[in-house]
């Protein structure tokens, strides 16, 4: 086999950062966000003008979905000490829905590429900040809850991944799952969200999640009457409203009513 000249390797790799910015090193809690931002940025590079107008979720096209992500990311800026891309009026600042509506409306008056640039600059600043590299005792109001900034980074990684997947499916690109080593944190966020918002079940039910970040948790008290099994990735998809239960491979065992009730409870959260 003919080998390329030795100098070609170094020359090729030296051009890497000029073509596309690599994900910056961060603390573990911000890694899913760093990966998802890199993944969405790469996906947006691929899109034609027509694809930017493709319907994605919640009545938004690709442009609107990126604006929605930018609105959510903006909640972290004050805590991280980075500039927010859009100045949101005080009345809409803490209200998740109002904030998104305001930012999407502002961005609709701009070009998709301008919105993409603003979203990426804001995300890059959040990832380059000291707050993304070190765990600090900083709290903020996030989606109606008082949370640690580190947990908010994790939540942004969760949402950016799933909305990138929403966009990918809308425009026909296959978006990969998160890195296996980041799944335990993403699953932990999901099960914690489920545990604090889950209504009292009619009977205790066991949720078994398989794959990277595998875990088993029982919801409700007493002896478990049913078991629901799915992969950790599918659990996140179902919880985020990215997929419907009927489109996932889910195993159920025991009392059918309890199993169905659990699945409906997870899907009804549709936290994104």
């Amino acid at each position: 086999m003919t080998r390329p000249p030795e100098h070609l390797r170094a020359r090729t790799l030296a051009g890497l950062a000029l073509c596309r910015t690599p994900a910056p090193p961060t603390a573990a809690f911000a890694a899913p966000y760093a990966h998802a931002v890199a993944g969405l940025d790469a996906l947006l590079r691929d899109l034609t003008r027509a694809e930017w107008a493709t319907p994605v979720v919640h009545g938004w096209d690709v442009h609107g979905t990126v604006a929605h992500l930018m609105a959510g990311d903006g909640l972290l800026c004050a805590g991280a000490g980075t500039p927010e891309a859009v100045h949101v009026p005080k009345a809409a600042r803490g209200d998740w829905g109002a904030r998104t509506r305001y930012v999407v409306a502002v961005e609709n008056a701009r070009s998709p590429h301008a919105t993409w640039g603003s979203w990426h600059s804001q995300a890059a600043a959040l990832l380059d900040s000291d707050a993304a590299r070190h765990h600090r005792d900083i709290h903020l109001e996030f989606a109606g809850r008082h949370v640690l900034l580190a947990d908010a980074y994790l939540a942004r990684g969760f949402e950016t991944w799933l909305h990138t997947d929403d966009i990918g499916r809308a425009v026909g690109r296959r978006v990969p799952d998160p890195e296996p080593e980041t799944m335990p944190a993403l699953v932990g966020l999901g099960t914690a969200t489920l545990a604090c918002t889950y209504p009292t079940p009619p009977a205790a039910t066991t949720l078994t999640l398989t794959g990277p970040g595998a875990t088993t948790t029982t919801l409700g008290t007493g002896v478990s009457t049913a078991e629901v099994t799915m992969t950790t990735v599918d659990f996140c998809r179902l919880l985020g409203g990215n997929r419907r239960a009927e489109n996932l491979t889910i195993g159920t065992d025991g009392d059918p009513e309890s199993a169905t009730w659990l699945l409906q409870a997870i899907a009804s959260l549709a936290i994104l």
């Binding site: 890497l16 596309r20 690599p22 994900a23 990966h35 990969p176």
Partner: peptide, 11 residues
């Protein structure tokens, strides 16, 4: 997956 996630070591 690593390429999409911006892992420069993979190249």
């Amino acid at each position: 997956r690593r390429l999409v996630h911006g892992d420069e070591a993979v190249l």
